[in-house]
Simulated assay, not measured.
Amino acid sequence: MQIQFPDYTVLSKIGCGSQHQVYLAKEKSSSKSFAIKIEKNPQLGQLENEIKVLQKLKGIEGIPKIKQIGVAQENKCYFVLPLLHSNLLELVKGRKVSQSAIMRIGLRVIEILEQVHKKNILHLDIKPENIMISQAFEKESDIEKDGFIQLIDFGLSQLYEENSEGLQDVFIGSLNFASRSSHDGSPLGYKDDLESLLYVLFYLKDLTLPWSHQQYYTFSVQDFELIKQSKLTFFKTLILQCKSFNHFSVFMSYINQLHYNQIPDYSYIREVFKHMIQASNNSIIQFKLDQQQSLCTPTQSYLEDSEIQKITNCDNFEEILLEHNNNGSEKTIILVSNLVGKYNTKQIKSIKDIKY
């Protein structure tokens, strides 16, 4: 049955998640286009949670503003949002994005997350599909425009409450981009959004992550554990794929030392990103930060093509090989291990979705 809304004409389906669908619709009174998000089954609760979160975040630049809330046929809850241009996954697949632009996107998301976290709200599902641009990306300076970067999909978001045990012993997020704490059931906090953003930025650079392969495997607890171990290895070794990312280890180290209930120092993080933007534009930069000076000495070495780097103190992975992709333009990390499967982030939202 064709979905219908009183004030809108549905034009097409433009997206979906595990518990919702998104439609392109035209407002009957103005002929303007909007996005309508509606739950797949009535009273699932995720959409109601997102509405409450978005209402608390009203007025924050970079957070879409709800235009209308309603109930459609079959008692399905929906809400109307501004129509945005595309998400970061679509952006990087359609064009080459410079490392400087990636860092600028990261800085803008940090600024949005700072305001979200001030409301004691954790996003908990940061991934390329949930970071959007509001208009066509023509030049790098576009990123600086007000509202150009938008953070969406707060369906899994939670209110952080100190001393609460509600955000532990549960996997929350999308498997490729979820934090290590989400994997092992540790308490979740502000740092977990930052860690997910870290994975997003590395993905934007290489269109892959060390634990992502082109093949698809059936979800299993073993694969789930292997991806967790790969993320642990990623942080342990700080192996980076591009020299202009050489100060990224500073951000990684800072995330690593944060406690789950600690509010990040966003002023410091912004300075780190500004230095990384400079490093992307200039081959050499003196990295001088007064705060957290002990974190500001990159220690990683850089691997050349086809060079094998042995990883010590790692039970699951024995070596890493960097080689060119088929087109010769990008480098790919290949983890020489038994198996790390590729997970479609739309197909797993919780530990309950993993097949035993």
Rank of each mutant, 00 (worst) to 15 (best):
W211Y: 06
L209I: 01
I239P: 00
S230G: 12
K236E: 15
Y268V: 05
W211L: 07
Q262E: 07
Q278I: 04
H275K: 11
Y254E: 01
S283H: 00
A279H: 03
I227L: 13
K228M: 15
F287T: 06
I263T: 14
L209G: 01
I227D: 10
A279Y: 00
N256P: 00
I239K: 11
I255A: 04
T218H: 11
D265Y: 05
Y217P: 02
L226G: 07
H247W: 03
I239D: 13
S212Q: 15
P210E: 02
K231A: 11
Y216A: 14
T233N: 10
P210K: 05
H247V: 00
F235S: 06
D265A: 08
C242R: 09
F234I: 09
L232Q: 12
D223Y: 12
D223P: 01
D265H: 09
Q286C: 09
M252G: 07
I284G: 00
C242T: 08
H213V: 08
I255L: 04
F224A: 01
S212R: 15
I263Q: 15
M276V: 02
K243L: 05
N281A: 10
K243R: 08
Q262C: 01
S212H: 14
D223E: 14
Y260A: 10
S283Y: 01
S249W: 04
I255V: 06
K274D: 09
I263W: 13
F219E: 03
M276K: 06
F234V: 08
N261C: 08
A279D: 01
Y217C: 11
T233Y: 07
K231Q: 14
I227Y: 09
V221I: 14
M276E: 09
Q222S: 13
C242A: 07
K231I: 08
N246G: 01
S283L: 02
N256S: 12
Q215I: 09
K228L: 15
T237H: 08
D265S: 06
Y217S: 13
F287D: 06
H259F: 14
T218F: 10
Q214T: 07
N281M: 11
R270T: 08
Y266H: 00
Q222V: 08
Y266V: 00
Q286V: 11
L238H: 13
F248N: 10
K243N: 07
I263C: 13
S283Q: 03
Q257G: 02
F245E: 02
H259A: 15
Q229R: 13
V221D: 13
K236H: 15
L209W: 02
Y268H: 11
F248Q: 09
N281C: 08
F273E: 06
Y216D: 13
E271N: 11
V221Y: 15
M276D: 04
L226W: 10
S267D: 10
E225S: 12
Q257A: 04
I284C: 03
F245K: 01
Q257K: 10
F224N: 01
A279C: 02
N246K: 12
K243G: 02
S267E: 11
N246C: 08
Y260L: 09
I277T: 05
K274T: 08
Q278Y: 03
Q215N: 07
F234Q: 12
L258Q: 15
S230M: 10
N281Y: 09
S253N: 13
Q257V: 05
S253M: 11
Y260G: 08
H275D: 05
N261R: 10
